[in-house]
Simulated scan of single mutants.
Amino acid sequence: MKQLLFIEYPKCSTCQKAKQWLDDHCIAYEDRHIVENRPKRDELAAWFFQSGLPLKKFFNTSGLLYKSMGLKDKLPSMTEDEQLDLLSTNGMLVKRPLVVSNSRILVGFKPKEWESLI
């Protein structure tokens, strides 16, 4: 298996907990700052399709940017293409942490789900 890609915002406490979880379980990963190296549209599309999750799960719905843009009301009327375009404009719109492996995409930190990585 290739190394995991761990996409995070270092100041995010949930990301810090998730990173500690990976370290505690001796899981190797490549670390990527979600703002400095934001996910590209084609990456987001591939992860979305691989995950099988609704696209809304990839949005950081508790984030200030999401709220200030009024996305709760706008997303339902947007196409998936429009949502992917929007997600790719700013890493702070993307739910984090995001873990990408060749077999799984994990969005957010839920230790029970993450146990599948071990």
Results as ranks from 00 to 15, higher is better:
residue 49 F to M: 02
residue 84 L to A: 01
residue 87 L to E: 01
residue 93 L to D: 03
residue 87 L to R: 01
residue 69 M to H: 08
residue 74 K to R: 15
residue 70 G to Y: 11
residue 64 L to V: 06
residue 79 T to M: 04
residue 78 M to N: 04
residue 53 L to S: 11
residue 35 V to E: 07
residue 59 F to I: 04
residue 58 F to W: 09
residue 54 P to K: 13
residue 82 E to A: 15
residue 88 S to P: 05
residue 47 W to V: 01
residue 63 G to K: 02
residue 80 E to M: 03
residue 67 K to F: 05
residue 41 R to W: 10
residue 30 E to A: 13
residue 55 L to E: 04
residue 38 R to I: 00
residue 39 P to E: 09
residue 41 R to P: 04
residue 35 V to T: 12
residue 92 M to W: 05
residue 86 L to G: 10
residue 32 R to P: 03
residue 51 S to T: 03
residue 48 F to W: 15
residue 91 G to T: 08
residue 39 P to Q: 14
residue 34 I to W: 00
residue 72 K to G: 15
residue 40 K to Y: 06
residue 35 V to S: 02
residue 57 K to T: 13
residue 95 K to F: 04
residue 76 P to W: 10
residue 35 V to F: 11
residue 52 G to Y: 04
residue 63 G to V: 06
residue 70 G to K: 07
residue 84 L to F: 04
residue 83 Q to Y: 08
residue 38 R to D: 04
residue 65 L to E: 10
residue 56 K to I: 14
residue 41 R to F: 08
residue 71 L to A: 10
residue 95 K to N: 12
residue 46 A to K: 12
residue 38 R to C: 09
residue 41 R to M: 08
residue 94 V to C: 11
residue 77 S to L: 12
residue 59 F to D: 02
residue 85 D to V: 11
residue 58 F to A: 04
residue 58 F to P: 01
residue 37 N to M: 07
residue 34 I to T: 07
residue 30 E to T: 12
residue 82 E to N: 09
residue 55 L to S: 07
residue 62 S to I: 00
residue 68 S to H: 01
residue 36 E to G: 15
residue 62 S to M: 09
residue 56 K to L: 14
residue 81 D to R: 07
residue 69 M to G: 02
residue 40 K to M: 12
residue 71 L to E: 07
residue 94 V to E: 03
residue 39 P to V: 09
residue 55 L to V: 14
residue 66 Y to V: 02
residue 43 E to T: 09
residue 81 D to K: 10
residue 75 L to G: 03
residue 35 V to R: 13
residue 38 R to F: 00
residue 59 F to L: 05
residue 85 D to R: 03
residue 46 A to I: 00
residue 55 L to N: 05
residue 45 A to T: 14
residue 42 D to A: 13
residue 73 D to A: 14
residue 90 N to G: 05
residue 34 I to E: 03
residue 36 E to V: 00
residue 80 E to P: 02
residue 64 L to M: 10
residue 36 E to N: 14
residue 88 S to H: 09
residue 71 L to I: 14
residue 65 L to Y: 13
residue 89 T to F: 03
residue 62 S to H: 11
residue 55 L to M: 09
residue 89 T to R: 13
residue 79 T to Q: 05
residue 78 M to W: 12
residue 38 R to P: 15
residue 47 W to Q: 03
residue 92 M to Q: 10
residue 73 D to C: 03
residue 79 T to E: 06
residue 81 D to N: 14
residue 90 N to W: 05
residue 72 K to P: 01
residue 57 K to F: 07
residue 69 M to K: 15
residue 62 S to N: 14
residue 43 E to Y: 02
residue 34 I to H: 01
residue 69 M to I: 00
residue 47 W to H: 07
residue 38 R to L: 10
residue 72 K to V: 00
residue 84 L to T: 02
residue 37 N to S: 13
residue 40 K to G: 11
residue 62 S to T: 08
residue 34 I to K: 02
residue 59 F to N: 02
residue 69 M to R: 15
residue 85 D to Y: 04
residue 73 D to S: 13
residue 64 L to Y: 02
